[in-house]
Computed example of a mutant assay.
Amino acid sequence: MHQPRRHDRRPSRRKASAPVPPLPPYRLPATGADVVLVGFFSAKQKDFETVMVEAAARLAAHGARVVARIVQRRGVSSGGVRRMDLPYSSRTLLSHGKAREVAHVADRADAEAVVFANPLTQHQRRALTTMFGRPAVGVTDILFDLD
């Protein structure tokens, strides 16, 4: 018979890490920055194109040029429907392949920022900014220069 596992009762030697300060809001330059617009939508959301067009119009109204639009749809294909119950990467909001595609497109277009049509958490902003090598923000998190 197996013995029940004994849990180690020694105190942890791990030091508590200092809280990470939140990232400041991204300020979009008034001179017309090149941005990549990204959206994450489930198959249930049928009006995803409208959301992307509205986000692009909001960015264009403030002088940004949307050089590429990338959409991650979840649960559209038959294989995707079977995987809807599986968690997506809450760290990046995108699948690994789609995140690599966004990074590649942003590099080729020499974009200043990657703007998501969806709101991002601080953790997602930090992880995506590191992954892309440029600011990654939600369209609602942008401060627009009105100079």
Rank of each mutant, 00 (worst) to 15 (best):
H104R: 13
A56I: 08
P22E: 07
A16K: 12
M84V: 08
R9G: 13
A103R: 14
Q72S: 08
V76N: 02
I70D: 09
E54G: 03
P19K: 02
S42D: 04
R82C: 14
Y88M: 11
A18S: 13
P22D: 11
L28P: 02
G75L: 11
K46W: 03
R108A: 09
K44D: 15
P29H: 01
T92V: 10
R14L: 15
D8Y: 01
S77P: 12
A33H: 03
P22N: 10
V105M: 07
V35W: 04
S89R: 10
R82M: 15
T50G: 14
R100M: 09
V20H: 03
L37M: 03
V66C: 07
A33D: 00
E49D: 12
R58F: 04
R10C: 01
A103W: 00
K46N: 04
S42T: 13
P22T: 05
V105S: 03
V38K: 00
G39E: 10
P87F: 10
F40Y: 10
D107W: 04
S77D: 06
S90L: 13
I70V: 15
Q45C: 08
R9E: 12
P22V: 06
A16R: 13
D85C: 09
P25D: 00
I70R: 13
P25R: 01
L28M: 13
R100Y: 11
V20F: 01
A99K: 11
F40M: 08
A117Q: 02
V76P: 00
V81S: 07
V71G: 05
F40V: 14
A68G: 15
R69L: 06
